[in-house]
Design a protein around this nucleic acid. Structure first.
Lengths: 255, 255
DNA sequence: GGTACATGTTCCATCTTACGGAACGGGAGC
DNA sequence: GCTCCCGTTCCGTAAGATGGAACATGTACC
């Protein structure tokens, strides 16, 4: 719990403020202070500093409101290049999209941050489904989440599934037990499925992206509006996704 | 030049370090110190701090290399929601993609940061072109850049075009003069064109996204491999892009 | 083997500067 | 009028950021 100790307190708190602005923007000083527990005057100093660094701008009406600038984006976007994941994945993702005509999501798993949507190629069908770039997806309710879980050590699975599992629909797995049972099936078939367990009207299949040691770096998912989704389609898409994920894994290994 | 004065020095330098990591990752301490001019030990402290805040991880091989985590992404992504640009634009972008079958880019203009690619819908053609999400595109060499320039006040145009204009190809406008002349044509037609002036083998047309006061918030661009690009196609795509951009502008106004 | 120059990391004395409670100015609403 | 909440400013104290120098380790050249 001591963490590494000698880190710069000012920076840590300022980053907390920045993250809070990202969540709540547009937002004022007091709201941030309330959300973080940091004294108002300190929050104010952080905000001014972040404005000077051009990460925030204060939309100056009567009540000063704070929002992110483009800098946050142009820095953040580079995160997805982590390990060349996107470069390694894009060509294969394109082929997968063209083969399925459905929306393909690339997700990066980064331990503490959970699963984040890093890139998306979307369907050319008139009815499509998508998730925001940068969205964090639930480990227990999404197929990508369970695809990753299936290849994590038991203690990490325990940690990720500890606490309340949010219920998004009646198809959301209700407890840790049922998720863990599903993981066996995922390991057997190579992919996980999701029938409206997270977002209403959306089915999906997900395959894990594994590094050379078998650790999951992320996942590849094919999302489908429910009217184009049934068990047969899931099997078909699953096979394609697994194959694509394997190719991407091979790309990563050779890099 | 005094800047606003009482900002926290530690935070400013740490953010500089963070931005440098984003540019150069994966990168080591010394390289950052060289790039920024900050003493090595200070850089090191910043890095440790950023790791504790979970913005960076040190890919611990023999030579310690630093990379961004998913947190940078999940914060940065919120920036593009600024004004709901993406939400307002996506449906129309989809229609534009389906009408053109080419890659569509959405760019956000944020003053100091220049033009940043915020989202992309890609072509379903086998030969496609695209720019990385988060990439900063040059104002003088890209069609999006000139589309935005055409609707900025003169002094801001001056500022953006001051200094050396980087030459990417023989089609890149060589000097400020020729760029400014082009802007007249852009204002007349409503869109800017780009015939291999920036990236080799890529043609494009771009239309500005204007808020209710006529200030450019960004641009919409259609990128085409040069074999599918000629003057007639540019006119056709230009009309579509202008129409789409107008619709998006209307969406923004009503929000 | 040896020299030279990379790299990342640790230490510590100096003195800059972040901290946060308290007070201020102003708008909104019973 | 009063009260409540807002954003902002002030300031003495004490916490902690700073960066040069030294260390450990690896690589390149001969």
């Amino acid at each position: 719990m001591t963490s590494s100790g000698h880190a710069m307190r000012a920076v840590i708190t300022t980053l907390r403020v920045l993250e809070t602005v990202a969540e709540l923007q547009p937002v004022g000083v007091s709201a941030i202070a309330r959300a973080t527990g940091i004294p108002k005057s300190s929050v104010h100093r952080c905000l001014v500093t972040l404005r000077e660094a051009d990460w925030l701008t204060s939309s100056s009406t009567d009540r000063t409101q704070w929002v992110l600038t483009g800098r946050a984006l142009s820095v953040g976007i580079h995160a997805s290049v982590e390990g060349g994941l996107r470069e390694a994945a894009l060509p294969t993702m394109h082929r997968l999209r063209d083969a399925t005509h459905e929306t393909i999501h690339l997700l990066s798993y980064s331990g503490d941050q959970g699963l984040v949507v890093v890139d998306r190629l979307d369907s050319d069908e008139p009815v499509r489904t998508w998730v925001h770039l940068g969205a964090r997806v639930p480990m227990h309710a999404s197929c990508s989440g369970r695809a990753v879980l299936a290849h994590l050590p038991d203690d990490e699975v325990d940690r990720l599934l500890s606490g309340e599992l949010e219920r998004f629909s009646e198809n959301t797995p209700a407890d840790k037990q049922s998720v863990v049972e599903d993981l066996v099936r995922v390991r057997e078939s190579g992919y996980a499925t999701n029938d409206r367990a997270w977002r209403p009207g959306v089915g999906a299949v997900g395959a894990p992206l594994l590094d050379k040691d078998g650790r999951p770096l992320g996942a590849l998912a094919v999302s489908v509006p429910i009217q184009r989704y049934d068990e047969a389609r899931a099997v078909e898409l699953g096979a394609l996704a697994v194959d694509a994920a394997r190719r991407i894994g091979a790309n990563l290994r050779s890099a």
